[in-house]
Design a binder for these strands. Sequence first.
RNA 1: GUCCCCGUAGCUCAGUGGAUAGAGCAACCGCCUCCUAAGCGGUAGGUCGCAGGUUCAACUCCCGCCGGGGACACCA
Length: 554
Amino acid sequence: MSTQVEQLEAAVKSAIERAVSAGSFDAAVPETIVLERPKNRDHGDYATSVALQLAKPAGKNPREVAQIICDQLMGTDGISKVDIAGPGFINITLNRADQAALVSTIMKAKADYGKVNALAGVSINLEFISANPTGPLHLGHTRWAAVGDSLGRVLTAAGAQVVREFYINDRGNQMDLFGASVEAAALGKPIPEDGYQGGYIADLAAQVIASDPGITSLPEGERHPAFREAAYAVQLKDQQRVLETFGTHFDVWFSERSLHDQGAVEHGLDKLRSQGHVFEEEGAIWLRTTDFGDDKDRVLTKSDGSLTYFSSDTAYYINKRERGFDICIYMLGADHHGYVGRLKAIAACAGDDPEYNIHVLIGQLVKIMEGGEEVKLSKRAGTIITLEELVEKVGVDAARYTLIRYPVDTPMVMDIDVLKRNTNENPVYYVQYAHARIAAVLRNASELNISVDLKDFDSSQLIHDRENQLLGALAEFPRVVQTAAELRQPHRIARYLEELAGTYHGFYADCRVLPMGEENSSPLHTARLLLCASTKQVIKNGLDLLGVSAPERM
RNA sequence: GUCCCCGUAGCUCAGUGGAUAGAGCAACCGCCUCCUAAGCGGUAGGUCGCAGGUUCAACUCCCGCCGGGGACACCA
């Protein structure tokens, strides 16, 4: 089923085609017509600047072109008025009753309203967080936990096949240090100097001992790996538990070790060799990433024969592609932006198109304020804020919503004190409140036995400005989902919901939904109720994309 | 030195080349004897860091500068 905007776009396009074939002007018909919702209500329901774009190739002045298009557009089904404004904008006003048909569309589609097929048939691997299993998830991971999860939902809504993946860096030096730290804590010895100092190490030690009391009396050679493995298992499980309570689900937990066990590194190396970008120098094996814009070549195998972290990255990428993913999305912190070039180079070296097959999102840091002051985060000083602590302080909904609400490339400041408040300084409540408010109206309607049945819906009732505005906002939802998916920007969903909630509140203030006092119910009441129900559905659908709850009561 | 991100209202921030640059908070003024006031309406608040360029049109794209943050290992 095509949306209102798609129909309108087709209409404008065909108007241009008719004008061209009638010889009114000569220009190539644009692939897509940009239709925007004007900020100013006097400029109609939709506006387009095609005439301005076509003026030059057509060799006419823009208003003339606009006039020709308007003439062709006049009389199109559903369009009630077409105006030319300013330098040559075409302002289109739709027939109000026709727009109200959207209510049936939404009520029938329910949870499916907003799904689009922009990414249909595309298989996407979405990797995010990928923390070391050597400590609790902290604030930096939390931004990704919220945004990554939401992006997964948005991409799915846009038709993509999405696998959410967490890469476990369970190999190498850090793991040994981690194991040694927990072991030292368990034995009451001082933590190694370059080891992990956080308070959680003692807790881990206690848990490890509790589940395996004999571990401390193992001979040293066995004790060391035993501690490492036990602590790893406990810590990973903890990360998984915390993420589930946060509503972030992963389809695949991919262990770096398993990559090596499968021989994926050698396999990756072979593949890269066959593409001709591997060379040997000073006893090490290198990948010539500078062939593709990286600032220096990267070592795969060190001169002592051991593998670099980079070799895991290459193997992992190749592994993902061989598992059938078209697009690999990586969500990295700002401190890793230097990886972008080499990741893209990996793709290029593997014979892929780095502009299509790899997409790297760089997230800026989150600052946190509490009690009017910035909380300095420092592992050493023990002032790290974990995901779990944040949720304890402000709740899952507020934490998720706030983190998703901003584009990831802006550094953001979270004010804990504001998020703790149940006021609309906290935008999540503004949106949730609209949902709860509608739920209340619908409950009251059901007590009054007023029909909310679509077969009693009379679209010609909805002609009030506020109703029209609300319908316009509802019609935007699929476009917003599509843009959010294409640009990988879930914050657009949140911003849209705030606008929709605002439009609803305005409608609610000016348009009485239920009968007053002894008044009998009329078709207008039913029509407005259905408009409310549609709005509730869209808010719910949007909040679902954010992983934020849509309460029936507040 | 090279690279990335940011600079928009008092504060926190939106704005994928379009018309008079927006929202929330903070300030001020109004609105509950009937559907949730966690709401609505209004007033005030701006040289979109600075200077060039491209364009019919620039907060948006390009170049240079200024200011803030971050990154540049045969580390993981």
